[in-house]
Design a protein around this nucleic acid. Sequence first.
DNA 1: GGCGCTTGATAACCTAGATCAACGCGCATC
DNA 2: GATGCGCGTTGATCTAGGTTATCAAGCGCC
Lengths: 257, 257
Amino acid sequence: MNRLLIASLDRFGPLRESVRERLSGCSLSTETFESGALIVGRGERSHLRLLARGLAVKQTVLGDGARQIFGLATPGDLIDLGGLFAGLDFEVRALGACEVRKTTPGELKAMVQDHPGFLAAVCRAVLTEARAQRNWMVSLGRRSALSRTANLLCEVYWRQKTLALAEDGHCALPAVQSDLADALGLSVVHIHRVLRVLRDDGLARLRNGVLQIQDWDRLAALGDFEPAVFAPQSEIADHGPRTPTHAPGDERRGSID
Amino acid sequence: MNRLLIASLDRFGPLRESVRERLSGCSLSTETFESGALIVGRGERSHLRLLARGLAVKQTVLGDGARQIFGLATPGDLIDLGGLFAGLDFEVRALGACEVRKTTPGELKAMVQDHPGFLAAVCRAVLTEARAQRNWMVSLGRRSALSRTANLLCEVYWRQKTLALAEDGHCALPAVQSDLADALGLSVVHIHRVLRVLRDDGLARLRNGVLQIQDWDRLAALGDFEPAVFAPQSEIADHGPRTPTHAPGDERRGSID
DNA sequence: GGCGCTTGATAACCTAGATCAACGCGCATC
DNA sequence: GATGCGCGTTGATCTAGGTTATCAAGCGCC
């Protein structure tokens, strides 16, 4: 029971046995969402929502209808940690069909209070998210449209590859062009042109919700992609993969010692 | 002793007495930095560095020499939390003269392990930082040069006002135009144009490292500024200001209950 | 004094990307 | 089978902002 949740937190540094036990006894309900559905709204508090299947985006929509996407969630990600101590300042929306597990704020609070090891794992998850945000900011501020698109496609592929959700150079990306535009701070028309360049140059193609990577090396170079950005921040020095599902080969593990 | 550190963490929700005692017994050394100096470099681990005086920026410099600034640090901010569980993925640089207090990774680790309340406060600080980053992303992705500049100036003024470091509509901002450019993802020349518009329109002016707000309402409207973004995330429901220095009137306090 | 160096100011020109406007296609609805 | 709609595609045009260059003011330094 709750294996996914435990595995998810575990990749941020091994949980103590007591925490694992507590987590496995934690009641989780499952919800499913269809493409485009709102998973969590602004102002909501954290239910320790775990994305179990599918892809989701964190986003804000501004007063004038413009939208900015802050980041991507892949299976295993906790998507509402931003609502841990205050109302969520963004919303989470399903990109394609999603399955989400969640507990209750009460149970979450109890776990936080009873198990410091749990809180530490959450803290690491938040730090990892903040790091991904910084990469996103570099894209928005200092990379060309072509480069930041390449970077995003690399992120999408890499993260799913890490989860064994990608193979043979292709993976799911159930996003329409306007989703990419709002993620990258570009217009829909321009995203289309950028995608065409990537396609014509034989780097990658996106069609019918599946992303096909054709030349990883050139794409990664073009997008200035650094896998380390997305590696979980663990407390443990590198001692090889723990759970095959969640151990990309070259993630950097660190220690607080 | 260590009053500043305690007050800093305290604004994210009151610390338990035991944690306060632990913190007040914690050894802190003081360093000073001149304008432009590197306070923390990439890859370093957290020393629980606290900015005691001055302004600093979190930034990355890319391979081609371009720079992206991710955020601002004002007195009371912990500036190296990103290096808590892994090497820091950015650097922190002094904007004007700075004073920084720090402890040692060892002592930090001990505090994390011994005092869950301390870890919770750190976690809230990290969440607050992530929220500020999201606002920054909205600026970079979806606001015009004029609007995002206005937003940044509002942030600078608001945060210092909150700390009683601003008065009569002016505060310190020891940044040159290229600093603003790298913060906002613009070119130096264009920042200059934008500043001239703001000056000509009587909204704000920046000269010799001091920022003068001339029309807060119009500036905030132009920049789409929301003070709540920068309020600390507290565990406590609103029951009035605790420390006068750190209690802006309208911050939103939340509860995990 | 002159000599660098940094920063601000401004002008001339250029381009990446936005905006506007079509059109086509698949697909659901009636 | 018409009608709409979401999405992709493309061209034409516009503009926000980038690039390059120049000049002046301030300032430490020899």
